[in-house]
């Protein structure tokens, strides 16, 4: 009797432990897969439409072309509205950015350590725009499976993050994120990003990201079109000289 009881307990502990560790492994694996889906192309070009929607539902539209190489080089060139056409932003590794304002005919280097500031009036912070792998920035914890998604709780590795956690829903079959919910350090949900992915060639593309600032009741939609992958962009395409063109 006694030994049987012990066996049962022991088995239960082992099973529980293995479920736990399996989940931990699963969580990392799931997040890694998501990173693979999001960051696997060598480069990308496309058109970006930024729709800003205020709390009264009033929309403001900006358009830009995007070029991206790897995870850390990106060029934004605004094409519309006319007053902002030609403004370009070049992001390089190590938080270095260059801004070009055509009306001044000059570029300026912008070093920003304040990453919780929003990018150009959108609801995306510099932090959100950064293409650092999620598995590097966050420690994942498996929460549950729900319908067609895995739910993970991501805890920032750096204590400097503005977020206490990010709840992410990842598509079970195709591993792209569907919803991310950002919580501040008071554990209040402050932002929410909804993703719509489309397959283009071999890659999944975030055709639309809708970011809502729940405090300000303000929304930004980023829509991608004419997306091309792996066209062979080089580092020369991401220089200050190119910024002015």
């Amino acid at each position: 009797m006694k030994s049987r009881f012990q066996t049962v307990v022991l088995t239960a502990i082992i099973v529980a432990g293995s479920i736990f560790s399996a989940n931990a492994q699963d969580a990392s694996a799931i997040l890694k897969k998501m990173d693979d889906v999001m960051y696997s192309p060598k480069d990308m070009t496309g058109n970006n439409k930024i729709i800003l929607i205020d709390k009264n539902g009033k929309e403001e539209i900006r358009e830009a072309t995007i070029q991206q190489k790897g995870n850390d080089k990106r060029m934004f060139r605004f094409t519309s509205p006319a007053s902002q056409a030609g403004i370009s932003v070049l992001s390089l590794p190590n938080d270095v950015m260059y801004l070009y304002l055509p009306a001044f005919g000059k570029e300026r280097r912008i070093a920003t350590s304040a990453k919780n500031q929003n990018f150009a009036g959108t609801d995306f912070s510099y932090d959100d725009m950064e293409s650092v792998l999620f598995s590097v920035k966050y420690t994942p914890k498996f929460v549950k499976t729900e319908g067609n998604v895995y739910v993970l709780e991501l805890t920032p590795v750096s204590e400097k993050s503005d977020y206490s956690k990010v709840m992410v829903q990842i598509n079970k079959t195709d591993s792209y994120p569907e919803l991310m919910e950002y919580y501040d350090k008071g554990n209040t949900k402050v932002k929410e990003a909804r993703y719509t992915f489309k397959k283009i060639g071999n890659y999944w593309n975030a055709a639309e990201i809708e970011m809502t600032d729940l405090k300000k009741n303000h929304k930004t939609k980023m829509q991608m079109s004419d997306v091309k992958y792996d066209t062979g962009l080089t580092d020369d395409d991401f220089t200050v000289r190119k910024l002015k063109q």
């Binding site: 007053s83 902002q84 055509p102 009306a103 001044f104 150009a120 009036g121 959108t122």
Partner: peptide, 15 residues
């Protein structure tokens, strides 16, 4: 130049 002001505005937007 108004064009310059409009572009400087780009830096202030969203603050």
């Amino acid at each position: 130049d108004k064009a310059k002001i409009e572009q400087l505005w780009f830096l202030l937007d969203g603050q």
